[in-house]
């Protein structure tokens, strides 16, 4: 118990200033990378998921299996594939974004898009038959039809966004591989935790962990609040 208490005390003192400028830059980087990656995954994943949920076509089941597999894509595998693609001399090496935040955004989006697609599709598929039939009766453009459907199940789509954000912000394998944990450039909360742990700076690692938990809490609380506010009306 003495050891744990000591680590906990170290974490608290690290939070109250010991992390210094590092904490600021790490939190800032973590936030914007996660928000941009989540944003991309929502922009791409929600329309795709809506299309998948609303349409009937040959191979829909196979597509769903593929998407569900993507939801469980091992982050390190995503990181490795992206590393190979972005490696100088590789297909996209000319972009020169390996070990930069741009590569981390790509990696996280790659992991979050299947989640946005899968959860949106399942929410849309869950619409009652009457709602689907009424939607078809409106004869809207595909885009408007999707918008009405998403609005109808938005608490579930909000849940999909929260899940995508959760995946993105808590992920370490892929961002470590393609980001490189460079201090001030690509060091985010998760990779900082790995590093501090490897250097036996358990207090600092735990402090970063608290901040990570706090960020996930704030975002999820926000989405849940919106869902409850909607349900109350």
């Amino acid at each position: 118990m003495g050891f744990l208490l000591e680590v906990f005390r170290d974490a608290l003192s690290a939070l109250s200033g010991g992390l210094g400028g590092d904490l600021g830059s790490v939190v800032w980087l973590t936030s914007w990378i996660a928000f941009v990656a989540t944003g991309i995954s929502v922009l791409i994943g929600v329309p795709l998921g809506t299309t998948l949920g609303l349409s009937e076509f040959r191979g829909k089941r196979a597509t769903t299996v593929l998407v569900n597999t993507g939801m469980g894509l091992p982050p390190v595998l995503a990181g490795l594939v992206l590393l190979l693609l972005l490696w100088r001399g590789g297909p996209f090496g000319a972009w020169g974004i390996l070990f930069t935040p741009a590569a981390m955004v790509l990696a996280q989006a790659m992991l979050a898009i299947p989640i946005a697609v899968g959860l949106t599709a399942s929410a849309i598929s869950g619409l009652p038959l009457a709602a689907k039939e009424q939607l078809a009766a409106f004869q809207l453009s595909p885009w408007n039809r999707g918008a009405v459907a998403v609005r109808e199940v938005w608490p579930a789509v909000g849940g999909a966004v929260a899940a995508a954000f959760g995946r993105v912000i808590s992920e370490v394998g892929a961002v470590l591989i393609v980001g490189g944990n460079i201090r001030g450039e690509t060091r985010v909360l998760t990779t900082a935790i790995v590093q501090e742990t490897r250097q036996a700076q358990f207090g600092q690692a735990l402090a970063f962990g608290f901040v990570l938990l706090g960020m996930a809490l704030v975002v999820n609380a926000g989405i849940t609040w919106l869902q409850f506010k909607d349900a109350a009306r």
């Binding site: 009457a130 709602a131 009424q134 009766a137 409106f138 004869q139 809207l140 609005r151 109808e152 938005w154």
Partner: peptide, 23 residues
Amino acid sequence: AAAYLPQAPWMFRGTAGQNLDFG
């Protein structure tokens, strides 16, 4: 092309007016 009223008309989120406007 036909105007179609399903057996169980579904009211979507929003006001009666918004539902009236669909399509």
